[in-house]
Simulated scan of single mutants.
Amino acid sequence: MNKEAAILGIDTSNYTTSLALITLEDELLVDKRKLLPVKEGLLGLRQSEAVFNHIKELPLLAKAISKENSRFEIVAISSATKPRPLPDSYMPVFIAAESFGYTMSNLFHVPFYKFSHQEGHIQAGLWSLSLKLKRPFFALHISGGTTELLKVIPKEVGYKIDILGSSSDISAGQFIDRIGVKLKLPFPAGAHMEALINKEIVDHVNIPVSVKNNSISFSGPETYIQRKLKENIKDDLIAYSVFQCVGKSLYQLIKNASTQDTCRDILLVGGVASNKIIREYLSEKLNQEAFKTYFALPNYCSDNAVGIASLGVECFKHKVDGN
């Protein structure tokens, strides 16, 4: 029986171990992810703990893939090896994906492609929408570790990415998680906070927004709402107010940056981009500013290896030399 050629993508982010298999036609065969455990009350993992957990989980996910599908033949491997596509970008967690991928590529004598975690998010977002943008576009990458507005220029394979704006302190995801943990919710807290809002809320705490030019600060809004927690405001109102503040801040950042550029297509990716309240706020406001907004499907907003595998498909089809 002839086996179907597939690319294996690997991503080992701060909190998720991910493997994905995609055919050369960009069809997803397998998507396996494991959220790393964080003890109750903590706001994350040390890098050493995360690396240790990735090393434990990668063989288990690989075993699950091999059991689930015997139709494929891995013809190339691609890994997320750093946070951003910059020469000095580094984070220890990605050593696990690079080591695992490079080792297997040598054993199987197949090409090995290296990408950044951020490129994987952008590619996963576009892939989830069956979208190919050939002209430059904005991308808003909002997650537990990143809040960045990017200008993305598509290349034959991959993208050229420039940072137009960002957070000057904590990310949108950290802001949400810090308040969520204060509300005694599990980490990461975003989805649990959103689940608190099971009815329409017509009022909210007006958290001051701190955006100057192309820079957001979330530490000020966090301090403000931390004080408000002492006033016995209902948890669902706190959650809604935090999401509103994030939406307003991101909108202002985009509006400020857009005065310097003619792009009107914007892709939203990263775990925070899956939040329904933030999506609805940004969609309404950006449409009023004549933006065409593209929200990655929620399952492909959070950390995954699908985008990394899809980028590997592009490299393989264009016969890019692997490492």
Rank of each mutant, 00 (worst) to 15 (best):
E284Q: 02
I207E: 06
L8G: 01
F137S: 14
L149Q: 07
L311W: 07
A296P: 02
E156A: 04
Y102S: 12
P37A: 15
R33Q: 14
L36I: 10
H318A: 04
R135G: 00
E4T: 00
R71A: 12
E68H: 15
N323L: 04
I161P: 10
K114F: 05
S166Y: 06
Y281I: 00
A290S: 09
S116M: 02
S143V: 10
A189D: 04
S99Y: 08
Y15E: 07
S99R: 00
Y300A: 06
P85L: 02
H117M: 04
L19I: 02
H141V: 04
E222A: 13
S79P: 02
G220F: 03
D321W: 05
S302M: 13
A124W: 09
I179G: 11
I225W: 08
A191Y: 06
K255I: 15
T147V: 03
V272E: 01
R33H: 05
V269Q: 14
R33Y: 03
E27N: 15
L286S: 00
T262S: 13
A172T: 14
I225V: 13
K32R: 13
K234S: 11
S70T: 07
V93C: 00
L183I: 04
I207G: 11
Q47L: 11
H54M: 06
S310H: 10
P188L: 03
G9T: 05
L24A: 08
G144H: 05
V269Y: 11
S105F: 01
S128L: 10
Q226N: 12
A189F: 08
L28N: 09
S310N: 15
E284L: 01
S130N: 13
T223Y: 09
L35W: 10
V202R: 06
L8T: 01
G101D: 06
S241R: 05
S168N: 07
H109Q: 11
T12N: 01
K160E: 01
K230T: 11
F295I: 02
Y159S: 01
L29R: 03
K56W: 06
S18Q: 05
N106V: 03
V306R: 04
N304G: 10
F108V: 05
N213T: 15
L140Q: 03
V30M: 07
P83I: 00
V211T: 12
L86I: 01
L311M: 06
L61A: 11
L60T: 11
C301R: 09
T293I: 09
Y159P: 08
K184H: 11
Y251H: 13
I201T: 06
L253N: 10
V209I: 14
N232G: 07
S78H: 05
L35C: 07
R264M: 04
A191E: 07
V205Q: 06
D26P: 02
I225R: 09
L311G: 06
D31H: 15
G125N: 11
I233W: 07
L126T: 14
V152A: 08
K230Y: 08
G190Y: 09
I233F: 08
L185G: 10
F94V: 04
L24M: 07
S310F: 12
H204K: 14
T17N: 02
I278D: 00
I233Q: 06
L282K: 09
D26V: 08
